[in-house]
Structures are given as structure tokens and as C-alpha cells.
Nucleic acid binder design. Structure first.
Length: 875
DNA sequence: CTTCCCACGC
DNA sequence: GACGTACGTGGGAAGT
């Protein structure tokens, strides 16, 4: 299908200019309209996938309309110079995208579009017009659609004939009659005074068009209206003529010349850099479109018998693991780049090579990697030790800006202008189609990666230094990744038999419950389907729907809890959900990933993902094993020591975030709580409600706890109101009282937002950064969210820094001692170990000491530690 | 294969 | 006053 997209250049530029704040690049050029136009353009290319494309511009000067009607566009304000200066830049963007643009002296963009649209439709094309100008709706027919910007530039409405009928009750051709009657102030088209949209639509529904209206004035109801129509007859005809888009303007190009063949990435990247469109560069480079970056020749050698002269210090080393589940995964191959050149070694040859193994093991031979943890773990499973990692490109990229969606080598490369590396997805494919290409292609791809890493290391290291983040990388995250790698490889043992037993019990109870629920509902249905459940509850049983989701009734737990008591089915459903979750996610889920022989699960900690600096855990996620409800907590009984005579030890920080807040803000009241080791929620209740410790009621403590919780996670007054089931106003008052009780916390909250606005980012005690461009957003929500994030991230992020440092320290301590103890897991503020019983007491003492001393604050850090035969018992 | 809803942890 | 509201991972349903 041939598809022509016509873009109204001036109209979109104009919209973009007013929709976005007045941005400028480092050369002082204003770029907001260019930016908005470009985002729209990218969206159109992606959504519409045009085979033919044209952007039309107004030539400016005098068109036939001015000659017809001198006052045409007479009231329009002169285009602001900040915008007109951007038009040539928009032209440059189009040139970079190899998109044809056009302007004609005597005609407006509308007329070019009208002419082109009708001509193309005649040839059988599907046509889409992109504009902000409603006038163009008149072009719509069964082959032509008009996409109108609604608010800003991203929100659009798509008009076909049906949609126009729905909106106006008119045929597309009647749009000009509408304009003829009501006029258009922005173009200074007069229309008939006193006739607005309502009256015009009424007249048109009765008489169809301007001419018929004017011929039938005597039939029009309303004396005043009759007079006006009579008086402004000619003006109405003229107005209609002005609003009519020309569809037979002379065009100097053929339709086939609008054929769109895509663009050269390099051209676009170059221009985006010039314009400082960094965010687009990111998005752009992660897109998998059209032509690949042109590649320079790279000299590399496939080596099957590595000799010492191929290795040097430092070397960039690529250890390619195709499966993201890198435990037990095959290594595709290895590439090494250094001063002696670039080589590729097939995996089996590398594993057999003594000289390679020695090189990898050596502490002295410096190696730069991308995701060192993955390499360490994958190699360890192959019996190869990796030491001497002195730079990790992925970690570096993450620390420089955790918000970037990709820290892939190819993306970092194109971001930094190095190019020359294909996306992994382009080389290997994705999903079911993922496969290994011939060795030559793999060798080249890996070699290019290694080669570019050599260059990128210098660039990112320099940026880290400028940010004073190099130490964070080399002294914290990189040592930590080695520690995490060991923990992942070690794994934690789950008792499969116990899980199966629990599973059988659950499964029986679930069947019984299912039967009961179907009985209570009076029919059988899928309880796991929110859609079906909603119909049963709110239609069949007639319960009041409390909340709606985008797609129907909400059946979430908090909704059901509000309904509990109104029908016995509710409680059954809540229990069914609870048990169902346990069964599918935790019993089945864990059994699926537990090694059949060893019973161990080997999670992967993602160290380069969260915006706050925390870790995350996948396959399985061991950071969300149930604890709150006893039923679920029992799952933890299945997590047991892997060795004989050993126990599980759990050590968790008590209130680490609030301690960090007390330290950062320096608030005396809050510090006092921790210096005196008081219960923080009780202390908060005392301070907020101005009562003595003895007077604090359960409800007061619960509210205080919810506010403390809110502070730690950066929730809004709305979030707090939901938590406490109170009104938003009450929640806000509560927060205000809290801040009044802790004045330095209030001051901190204010200054941190101010500073973040100035600098563009917030940071933790150990210089972890998070950029918050939304702080200057005009959208209240986005701005508020950014403000809460600014307050919260230094707190949560510093807590993450602290436990990370404790892990690195603890690992070093364990290596120094003869304790038979292994670190197994981290759950944000908790560390889990396995230890021989004889060393239990010593380990508990050591871990407490290390964790409490990890980072000295103005208040003490407190660690609760306990042990038991399973994770459940270590409480 | 993707999106939505829901639920678990900190 | 509207806006739609901590960070993650994963399972099942349902729509493409």
C-alpha cells in the first residue's frame, strides 16, 4: 500500500514553539520548536511508516488570499523572532532525515497539502495529513485522514469522515461553510458577525451550505439573525472562499519524487549533537530502524592458539554471553583489544589456553570490561577465574546517568559519538528468532565492541572524574560487583521437598476455595480474570463498584476490603488471591528455577537498573519473598543452609533511611530519637501530637509510622491518604504537622529541591546521582513527582550506598578470617548468610560491627541480627 | 508478543 | 482546582 504523509510544517512548528519552554542549545540558539517538531517527526515515521513523505511550508509573502482580501491574516501577530529563527533549523532537520520539503510563492502550505493530497488519493494512495489547523479537515475523504494536534504536540486526534460527523455533525466539505459563517479570528476571516460555532452548525444542519442558507434567509428563525445574514451576505461568500483550500495549485514535483527511503543515521546523529538533542540521541540510537551506521574497516584477527604477545595491560575484554540468564550459559566468544591490536578467540580455544587463563586470572594484568559481574559468573561456571578488572563500562554509564534506558555498548558508543558497533539485537535477532550467526560475524561484532570499549573507557572515566564519581565506581560498585557475582554463583539452597509439600497443601485449599467461590457466585468463572470477576461482583451480585480502571472495574485488594462484609464471596476471593499468589509465584516459581541436583537457586542481581542505587533481583526475585502474613512467611522455611551443621543468619538495618534523614537534615528532634535508641514511630507520634510517651495511642503510632513510611518512599499527600484511609486534606495537614515538628527536615526538603533545580540533579552521600529534568516541568504532576523524588532519592540512595559498602567490607573481612561463612543475599536493608554453627556467634558479632560501621553518621546505625535453621527461623 | 491488572517485598 | 501519584519483579488473562 502506498502511503503519503503530508506535514504542515509551519503549523507544527508553531504548535511546538508554544507547547514547549524556550529551550536553547549550548550555542545559544533557541531550539524548542525544532525539538518539538523533531519528536513529532520521529513519532510520525514510527507510527505511520510512510512510503511517501512531504513537509510543506508557507513561503511567507503575499498569497492569492491577500490579493482577494487585503485584511487576510491582518490581526495575526508577527511570528516571534525566537520562532522564525528556528525555521531554518527545522529545514536542516528535514534535510538530515532526507525528507523532501516544499514551499510555493503564491500559495500557503494548506494549498500545497490540499493539492498533493487530492492528487495522491486519485492515484490510489492512502493519505495522512499532519497539522494543527482545523481548516484542513475539509480535505478528508475515504482515502485522506487528517491528524490534528490537540494539546501540545504529542496528543493528537485522528479524523476520518465518521469522526468529523461525530464531532461536528458535518461532511468534510462543509467545514468551509462552517468557516464562512462563523469566520476565523486567527486568520482574520470575518464570517457573519454574531454567528459562532453553535449557530453555524444549526444553520448547516438545516440548509447544508452557505449558499443555501443565504438563499433561504426568510426561512431562518430569529429576526436578528436574519438581518445579520442579509447584511453580511457577501462577506459570508468571501469568507468561505478564503477558507477553501486550493486543490489545483501548480506543483513543481512529481508524486514519485516524494518516495521516502529512510535516512542515514550518521547525518541525524551529527545534527542532533549540534543541536544538543541529547535525549533524542539516546532514543534514536536505541531504535532499530533503517540503515546502520556506516562502519569503518576494523583490523582484527581470529586467534585459535593465543600466545602471550596478544595480551597486554590494559586490555578491553569482551566476554560475550548470549543468554541473559548467564548462569550455565554458553560463552559465545572472547575479544580482546589492546595496544597490540584486536583479537577474537573462540570460546573452546580460550578455555583450553593456559596463557589465556593466566592472563584472565592475573591481578596485575588490567582488564576493562562491560558488565564484569556477568563475565565473572559465566567464566566461573567454566572454571575460569577473572581478576584484575579495573574498569567496568556498564557501571560507569549507569553511575553517570542511571535514567538511561540502555547501558549497552553500542548505545554508549553512539551516545558518545564513537559509532561503529551494531546493536546486539541486529546481530543476534531477538525473542524466538534469536540465533547465533556465522562465526565471522560474531568475531567482527565482538572485536568492534572491544575496540570501541578501549576508546570509551577514557571518555567515561573523564566524565566520572568531573562528577567526582570515580571513587564511587572503583571503590564501591566494582568491588561490589565481584562480591555479588560470588553470591549469585554460590546460590541459596531451597528445600524442594518442603516446597512441594506446601504446594500440595495450597493446591488442595485452592480447589476447595474455587468451588466455594463458584457456589457463592452461582456460576463458574475464572477467578484470576479481573474482567470476569468484575462482572460477577458488580453486575451479577450487584455490589457497588468502588473504583474503576482503564479497562473496567477495579477488583484490587483495597477495593475488596472495602466491600468485605457485604457478601461472603469477598473474603473467599481475598484468600484465594493470597494463596494463588503464593502457589504460582513462590511455590511453582521457585521450583521451576531451583537446580534439580543441588536444590540451589541462583538469582541475578541487577546492579545497573534502579534510579535510586538499590539493587534488583531476577530469576528468581529473592527480594520479595513473603514476610508480612504468616501464611506466606512460611515460604521462608524452604530457604535452608546448603552445608551440614550450618545455619542461616540474617542481619538487617533498623530504620536506616530515617537515620540517614536525621543525619542529612541534622534535625535535633529526630537525631535524639536515634541517639537515645527510642522507637522512632512512637517518638514521631510524641512530637507530632505533642504528647508524652505514655499518652501515645496505637492509632497515633500507626499514623506516625505511615508518615515516616511516606517520607522514606517519597509518597504524596494523596498516597498517604490512601494508606491511612483518610482524606487528602487530612493527610496534608498531617504532613505539615510532621514538618513543623522537625523543622530541619522541612528545611532540608526545601533546600534539596532548590539545589536540584539549580544543578539539575540530586546526589547521595557517596556521590550517586539522579537527574531530575522534570523539576521545571509545567505539568503539575510531573513537577510534584520530581520534587518528591528530589527529597527521597538522597535518603534511599544513601541507604543503598551504605549497605553496598557494608557488603564490600564484609566480604573483605570474611576473606581475612577463617570463618566458614558465605554471604548469600541482599534484600535492600538486610544481608543473609550461611555459616557453620561453630562460627555462628563470631559471624553475628562481625556482621553487626561491619554493618554498623559501614559509614559513620551523626546518629548510630543499628543492626538486628538473628539466626536459625532456615530463613524463616532467622527472625 | 505485548499490555493490563494484581500482588509481593523494601 | 486538575492532574494521578515510591521502587522494583513476576504471573495470569486477554488482545494484537
Amino acid at each position: 500500500m502506498k502511503k503519503l504523509v503530508l506535514i504542515d510544517g509551519n503549523s507544527i512548528a508553531y504548535r511546538a514553539f508554544f507547547a514547549l519552554p524556550l529551550l536553547s542549545n549550548d550555542k545559544g540558539q533557541f531550539t524548542n520548536a525544532v525539538y518539538g517538531f523533531t519528536t513529532m517527526l520521529l513519532k510520525v515515521l514510527e507510527d505511520e511508516k510512510p512510503s511517501h513523505l512531504l513537509v510543506a511550508f508557507d513561503a511567507g509573502k503575499s498569497t492569492f488570499r491577500h490579493q482577494t482580501y487585503a485584511a487576510y491574516k491582518g490581526t495575526r501577530q508577527k511570528t516571534p523572532s525566537e520562532l522564525s529563527g528556528q525555521i531554518p533549523l527545522i529545514h536542516q532537520v528535514l534535510d538530515a532525515f532526507s525528507i523532501k520539503r516544499y514551499e510555493a510563492k503564491e500559495y500557503e502550505a494548506d494549498d500545497i497539502i490540499g493539492t498533493q493530497a487530492k492528487a495522491a488519493a486519485k492515484e490510489g494512495y492512502q493519505v495522512v495529513v499532519i497539522t494543527g489547523d482545523k481548516d484542513l479537515l475539509q480535505l478528508v475523504d475515504d482515502q485522506i485522514e487528517v491528524v490534528l494536534t490537540r494539546k501540545g504536540i504529542t496528543e493528537v486526534d485522528r479524523y476520518n469522515e465518521a469522526k468529523i460527523d461525530e464531532r461536528y455533525g458535518l461532511k468534510p466539505a462543509q467545514i468551509i461553510d462552517l468557516k464562512g459563517l462563523m469566520g476565523d479570528t486567527s486568520d482574520n476571516i470575518p464570517g457573519v458577525p454574531g454567528v459562532g460555532e453553535k449557530t453555524a452548525l444549526k444553520l448547516l444542519s438545516e440548509f447544508h451550505d452557505v449558499e443555501t442558507v443565504l438563499d433561504s434567509i426568510d426561512q431562518v428563525s430569529g429576526k436578528k439573525l436574519k438581518e445579520r445574514l442579509e447584511e453580511h451576505k457577501e462577506q459570508a461568500i468571501l469568507s468561505k472562499k478564503l477558507a477553501t483550500i486550493v486543490t489545483d495549485a501548480p506543483l513543481e514535483h512529481s508524486l514519485s519524487s516524494l518516495l521516502y527511503n529512510g535516512y542515514e543515521d550518521a547525518n541525524v546523529i551529527e545534527l542532533f549533537k549540534e543541536l544538543s538533542f541529547n535525549s533524542l540521541l539516546n532514543r534514536f540510537s536505541s531504535d532499530d530502524h533503517v540503515d546502520a551506521v556506516e562502519m569503518k574497516e576494523l583490523d582484527y584477527r581470529i586467534v585459535t592458539e593465543p600466545t602471550a604477545d596478544y595480551f597486554a595491560s590494559p586490555s578491553a575484554v569482551v566476554v560475550e554471553v548470549l543468554d541473559e540468564h548467564y548462569h550455565h550459559a554458553d560463552i559465545v566468544g572472547i575479544s580482546i583489544a589492546n595496544k597490540n591490536g584486536v583479537i577474537f578467540i573462540p570460546t573452546e580455544k580460550a578455555i583450553q589456553s593456559e596463557v589465556f587463563r593466566t592472563f584472565m586470572k592475573s591481578d596485575e594484568q588490567e582488564k576493562w570490561l562491560f558488565d564484569a559481574k556477568q563475565a565473572v559468573v559465566a567464566l566461573a561456571w567454566q572454571g575460569i577465574e577473572l581478576n584484575g578488572v579495573s574498569f567496568d563500562l556498564q557501571m560507569a554509564s549507569y553511575l553517570l546517568d542511571p535514567s538511561l534506558s540502555s547501558h549497552e555498548i553500542s548505545d554508549i558508543a553512539s551516545r558518545k559519538g564513537s559509532g561503529g558497533v551494531q546493536e546486539d539485537e541486529q546481530v543476534y535477532g531477538k525473542g524466538a528468532k534469536k540465533a547465533l550467526p556465522e562465526q565471522g560475524k560474531v568475531a567482527e561484532h565482538l572485536s568492534r565492541k572491544a575496540n570501541v570499549m578501549f576508546e570509551l573507557k577514557q571518555i567515561l572515566e573523564k566524565e566520572l572524574k568531573e562528577n567526582e564519581q570515580l571513587e564511587l565506581l572503583t571503590e564501591l560498585e566494582m568491588p561490589l560487583s565481584i562480591v555479588l557475582g560470588k553470591m549469585e554463583k554460590e546460590g541459596i539452597k531451597v528445600d524442594r521437598t518442603q516446597l512441594k509439600d506446601m504446594g500440595e497443601d495450597l493446591s488442595e485449599r485452592l480447589s476447595a476455595l474455587e468451588e466455594k467461590i463458584h457456589e457463592e457466585a452461582g456460576e463458574s468463572f475464572n477467578i484470576n480474570s479481573p474482567k470476569q470477576l468484575g462482572v460477577i461482583l458488580f453486575e451479577k451480585l450487584g455490589l457497588p463498584p468502588v473504583k474503576k480502571t482503564k479497562t473496567g472495574y477495579s477488583t484490587s485488594a483495597d477495593v475488596l476490603e472495602k466491600l468485605s462484609g457485604s457478601h461472603t464471596i469477598i473474603e473467599s476471593i481475598l484468600l484465594y488471591r493470597q494463596l494463588g499468589k503464593l502457589y504460582s509465584t513462590y511455590i511453582e516459581g521457585l521450583l521451576k528455577v531451583a537446580d534439580k541436583e543441588t536444590g540451589k537457586v541462583h538469582t541475578r542481581f541487577n546492579q545497573a537498573l534502579t534510579q535510586t542505587g538499590r539493587l534488583s533481583s531476577t530469576d528468581p526475585n529473592l527480594q520479595n519473598i513473603p514476610i508480612r502474613l504468616e501464611e506466606g512467611r512460611k515460604i521462608r522455611k524452604a530457604f535452608v543452609p546448603s552445608k551440614e551443621n550450618s545455619v542461616i543468619v540474617s542481619a538487617d538495618y533498623s530504620q536506616i533511611e530515617l537515620r540517614v534523614l536525621a543525619h542529612i537534615s541534622g534535625d535535633e528532634g529526630m537525631k535524639e530519637a536515634f541517639l537515645k535508641d527510642m522507637d522512632i514511630h512512637t517518638k514521631t507520634a510524641m512530637d507530632v501530637f505533642h504528647v508524652t510517651e505514655a499518652e501515645v495511642t496505637d492509632s497515633m503510632r500507626r499514623s506516625a509510622k505511615a508518615v515516616n513510611f511516606g517520607i522514606v518512599y517519597g509518597i504524596s499527600d494523596y498516597g498517604l491518604s490512601q494508606n491511612l484511609n483518610i482524606t487528602r486534606k487530612e493527610a496534608k495537614e498531617f504532613i505539615d504537622r510532621y514538618l513543623a515538628s522537625y523543622p530541619k527536615v522541612k528545611a532540608y526538603m526545601e533546600t534539596v529541591v532548590e539545589e536540584a533545580k539549580e544543578k539539575g540533579y540530586v546526589q547521595t552521600l557517596l556521590a550517586r546521582r539522579r537527574y531530575l529534568p522534570e523539576l521545571t516541568s509545567r505539568n503539575f504532576n510531573m513537577r510534584s513527582f520530581a520534587e518528591r523524588t528530589a527529597m527521597n532519592t538522597p535518603i534511599q540512595g544513601t541507604a543503598a550506598d551504605i549497605i553496598k559498602r557494608a557488603m564490600v567490607d564484609m566480604s573483605a573481612e570474611l576473606e581475612k578470617t577463617t570463618l566458614t561463612a558465605t554471604m548469600l543475599l541482599q534484600v535492600h536493608d538486610e544481608l543473609i548468610f550461611e555459616v557453620d554453627e561453630k562460627d555462628k556467634d563470631e559471624l553475628m558479632k562481625l556482621v553487626t560491627q561491619v554493618m554498623e560501621q559501614a559509614l559513620p553518621l551523626d546518629v548510630p546505625l543499628k543492626v538486628d541480627v538473628s539466626s536459625g535453621a532456615s530463613w524463616y527461623d532467622a527472625k
